[in-house]
């Protein structure tokens, strides 16, 4: 919630998982690319697809569709990977699709209600309303560095 109250309007990259729309801070996005063959990591959780070679860097790929149990988990030429740059690390996330980049005003954002869901609400920064659409604002950095994702070792909480 902190960053959203900075007063400055934020540009969000909106992606879809199944029927839901999620928004993440566009400044965390490094690039968007297609899904390449990944090298599976032994004994990793199913949502960690493996690692890819991103111009000489070894980058792990997380499938958010599997993590959140949303959308059809298929991999084809339309599958999109968002490469994120978080706390000095690079991670790729697989989503159903990237729709657009939006700017939300402060008053368009409502706090997320507490409810038992797959997604811990502490990773949500709120719910944004844009016309008839509801965009779930994700604190992608907090989510990716959480122990739940098992992506990084001993990250500062």
């Amino acid at each position: 919630m902190e960053q959203i109250h900075d007063g400055v309007n934020q540009e969000l990259l909106v992606f879809t998982l199944g029927a839901e729309e999620y928004g993440i801070d566009i400044l965390k996005v490094q690039e968007i690319r297609g899904y390449d063959a990944v090298t599976a990591i032994a004994n990793a959780p199913s949502f960690i697809k493996g690692v890819i070679n991103l111009r000489g860097n070894i980058v792990p790929i997380v499938d958010l569709r599997i993590k959140f149990q949303l959308g059809n988990v298929t991999y084809d030429q339309f599958t999109v990977v968002i490469i994120l740059s978080l706390v000095g690390r690079t991670v790729g996330v697989v989503v159903d699709g990237v729709s657009d980049v939006v700017t939300l005003e402060q008053e368009q954002i409502r706090p997320a209600p507490e409810f038992g869901a797959v997604l811990d609400t502490s990773f949500m920064r709120g719910l944004g309303t844009l016309d008839e659409r509801m965009i779930i604002l994700l604190d992608i950095e907090k989510l990716m560095t959480s122990s739940e994702m098992a992506l990084f070792e001993e990250m500062a909480a």
């Binding site: 063959a37 990944v38 090298t39 990591i41 032994a42 004994n43 990793a44 493996g50 690692v51 890819i52 070679n53 000489g56 860097n57 070894i58 980058v59 792990p60 690390r89 690079t90 991670v91 098992a150 992506l151 990084f152 070792e153």
Partner: peptide
């Protein structure tokens, strides 16, 4: 660098075909 330690794996490399 971007992930964590994997048991039994010392590191990674990029093969001639670009795969890891």
């Amino acid at each position: 660098t971007n992930y964590r330690k994997v048991a039994g794996v010392a590191g990674a490399t990029i093969m001639g075909d670009g795969r890891v």
